[in-house]
Write a protein that binds this DNA or RNA. Structure first.
Length: 485
RNA sequence: GGUCCCAUCGUCUAGUGGUUAGGACGCUGGCCUCUCACGCCGGUAACGCGGGUUCAAAUCCCGCUGGGAUCACCA
């Protein structure tokens, strides 16, 4: 605050895994903090004790790190405005609750939930369309601030007037106070509810810009009233449109993967995931593909859209593929790091780094995920390729035997083991026999890769090296001979 | 139902009074080719409706319709 630099926060609730909708919110906050040289804070809102777990918190932290959305202040790293876990901040909320009571902005209410539920039920029985609102029973009871623990804290909501604020994406938003009611701010057990916890934390942590999902927009007027009651400086607000499922319903598991962890396990690069998410509600002219560094430079609030969007798996796959194809977005080193765990899953734990880096370029434009890349890379790292039955039956046949033997001899005598030279060498030999490349290519491919589809034959041969290729051809020649016998 | 919000191809979007309404994904026709891909060229497809304002409206205003959010001692 004193530095004048923006302070932003992402405040997930550890009641479940990190959801990609949440990531989008985190990303926008993080981008703005990084672009402006501000501070990005991770705050854990764990006041829902029934559903919050330390395991979920650990998952959120792990996934945020995997995404590269590092925080400057947070529950594990600490910072000058901690603690960063709401259940560790209870005394702060109590202090602010007392301030609100003292100023008359809030009061204690000892109506029980059962009483209120009964009233609600009675009302709806009488008029099904009526909406129950707290009748203000305890408004003027002047219950002691720190007395009976069975009382909740309620805000004294104004019934007239209106709250207007300027949203960075939605513009001016006005809500009449008549729509408000005396909302509960703190439970009878002394744990704050969302509106109180968020406001007190945002005030005490010096948050200058609150960017969150549009589903929170309804809370903003209440929170603004609280800021005013506390005499605190208002932050700016930016609400982000919703990301829905392909059918327009709330994005959920039945639409596919929603947990960040699932994307990692499927071999999705983090940068690609972020690229897809940023395009949800933000644009930069016709540009679609961005590195994280691009985004830090280009992101702004002016070009955030207001309309909700639907998640599109096809578009998602296309953006991911783009990141996987382009070395400027996923460097060879990063690609290698990304694919290594999936090679390990196939038992290929000792793939030599140099060979991996040499083989990668052949696979990039053929793999939509690191999982597919590991599959495409498989035969580079086995002594002998796993032969695909159908491919072998079709192409490793008797009438190819002499071609394979001839190819073996040509490769054995090839002066340079480099793709274009190899191709020229082989094509020349074939031409002498009145043959074309396609007459031997598939048989050779199956012999060398075990499959009927692969990157360019000579590129593969060059990466594998002469000894390996000759050995594989020898095995195939032997197989053909055995089958013919 | 109350309150708030939104509305351009199927999807993500560009567009801020004058454009043949652009791009991307998808779908599709073709080219390239040792297989599979990549790539390249082309096609398909949108301003929800109705009123205004204006010489001129996808762009501004109003209404309608449609969609979403929210109305807990969840966040």
């Amino acid at each position: 605050m004193s530095t004048g630099k923006p302070r932003l926060r992402f405040a997930p609730s550890p009641t479940g895994y990190l959801h990609i909708g949440g990531v989008r919110t985190a990303l926008f906050n993080w981008l703005w903090a990084r672009k402006t040289g501000g501070t990005f804070i991770l705050r854990i809102e764990d006041t829902d004790r029934e559903r919050s777990t330390p395991e979920n918190e650990a998952i959120i932290l792990r996934d945020m790190r995997w995404l590269g959305l590092e925080w400057d202040e947070g529950p594990d790293s600490g910072g000058p405005h901690g603690p960063y876990r709401q259940m560790d901040r209870l005394p702060i909320y109590h202090e602010y609750a007392d301030k609100l009571i003292a100023s008359g902005a809030a009061y204690r209410c000892d109506c029980t939930k059962d009483e209120l539920d009964a009233q609600r039920k009675a009302l709806t029985a009488q008029d099904p369309k009526a909406q129950f609102r707290y009748p203000g029973t305890c408004r003027d009871k002047k219950l002691p601030a720190n007395g009976d623990r069975s009382s909740v804290l309620r805000m004294r909501a104004p019934s007239s007037g209106a709250v207007t604020y300027r949203d960075l994406v939605f513009g001016e938003v006005t809500t009449p106070n008549s729509a408000l009611q005396d909302a509960v701010l703190m439970r009878s057990d002394g744990v704050p509810l969302y509106n109180l916890g968020a406001v007190v934390d945002d005030v005490t942590m010096g948050i200058t810009l609150v960017a969150r999902g549009r589903d929170h927009m309804i809370n903003t007027p209440i929170q603004i009233l609280l800021y005013e009651a506390l005499g605190a400086t208002l932050p700016q607000f930016a609400h982000l449109p919703m990301m829905l499922g392909p059918d327009g319903a709330k994005l959920s598991k039945r639409h596919g993967a929603v947990a960040v962890g699932e994307y990692r396990e499927k071999g999705i690069p983090a940068g690609g995931l972020l690229n897809y998410l940023v395009r949800f509600g933000w644009s930069h002219g016709d540009e679609e593909i961005f590195s994280v560094a691009d985004l830090v430079q280009k992101f702004d609030w002016e070009h955030c859209g207001k309309g909700d969007g639907k998640y599109d798996p096809k578009k998602f796959a296309a953006i991911i593929f783009e990141h996987l194809k382009r070395p400027d977005l996923t460097s060879d080193e990063a690609y290698a790091n990304g694919v290594v765990p999936f090679l390990a899953q196939r038992g290929l734990t000792d793939a030599p780094r140099a060979k991996l880096l040499a083989a990668l370029p052949l696979v990039r434009e053929r793999a939509q995920t690191f999982v597919e890349a590991a599959d495409a890379l498989d035969y580079f790292f086995r002594d002998l390729p796993v032969l695909d039955d159908k491919a072998a039956k079709k192409f490793l046949v008797a009438d190819k035997a002499s071609h394979l033997a001839g190819l073996r001899a040509e490769l054995a005598s090839a002066p340079v083991f480099e793709p274009s030279a190899l191709e020229a060498h082989v094509v020349a030999w074939l031409a002498g026999k009145g043959l074309e490349l396609k007459d031997v290519a598939q048989a050779a491919r199956v012999a060398i890769t075990g499959r009927s589809a692969s990157p360019g034959l000579f590129e593969v041969i060059a990466v594998l090296g002469k000894d390996v290729v000759l050995a594989r051809l020898d095995r195939a020649i032997a197989l053909v001979a055995a089958a013919g016998a």
